[in-house]
Amino acid sequence: MTPAPFTDTAPPRATAFGDGIVERARHLPFPFSSDSYRYSANVEPAPGRVDTDAGHWGENIIDIDGDYRSDLAERAEILARDPSRCQALSHMRTAVWDVIETLLPIMATDYPEVMAFQRDGLHCSWRNDLLGLQLDFVIGDDSSLGMDPLVFIGGQVQDDIALLDARDGALWLDAGLVTFAADWCLGFDVGMRFTEIHGPVPRVHEERIVSRAEQFLLRLQPGDKFRRTNWTMTVDRRLDTSTDSYPEWGADRRLVLLDPTLPDRLHLRVEVQHLIRLPRTGAVLFLVRSYLVSLTELATVPAWRQRLGQVLAELPPDMAEYKGIDRYRAAASAWLLGT
């Protein structure tokens, strides 16, 4: 059955299945296939359904769930407070429109009950019932949207958006709208080369993962769509753990250790990252959709409880430090494994 994806969910609740698995876990892209985790170029064609111990995920490129309206409201608040979360170098204007031309038809096809897209030449019509939106606009005419085109498309999807321009045999992060970054920020990275952005990541350079990934992305042909997962951990249900807002959340990574409700506050954060070579400009669209599930919620799936416990126990120190989970990962692992 398909759970009602368009209602705003209250705090997690057990479902009527009687297996005790919480709703948030049903469609979580659980990222671990073994009891140890290392970086790899773990890309696969998208979309494609994956069945998990709790349910399934991956049927659609753009995943719309019960958090849709609240995530978008949070994004709008963050943008109002800090406009630097949305940046586009001037030569990326065409690519931003390419994102709009590409994503809206995909969403209308995947969610026909609540979304519709029509196009006649450059004239487009977009309906999004989830937001009560009906808009007629002209491709390439920013004023017809009534707002910045990147802010517009960022207001339709829960994903963070990054745009990479391909030139001089390399990829450059030249535009993005990123409000839910995990431990990085767009303002620092914008304009950088792909290899520079990944400079601080441990291990991946010795293993040539970054250079291989860049070559792979440069070889993608317009219209190609791939995805990968990544993960970290976050204290509380906080989507915005960017370095911009570090003063708001940094200390919690230490203080949570003293909190008896640690299993409710510590969340596994899974990112589904889509990589799409845009058809009109050849720019690479990098979508990052972040899912948060608390240890308490995750533990309703016994196989995941064991596996995450083992992964956290085994993770090498340099990787734990880079992910920012080194202070509490032992406590998290001990709780999950019941040791």
Binding site: S40, A41, N42, V43, E44, P45, Q215, F216, R219, F226
Partner: peptide, 9 residues
């Protein structure tokens, strides 16, 4: 298999 494109290994 995964990527079917010669990158993932």
């Amino acid at each position: 298999n995964m990527c079917r494109s010669g990158i993932c290994g």
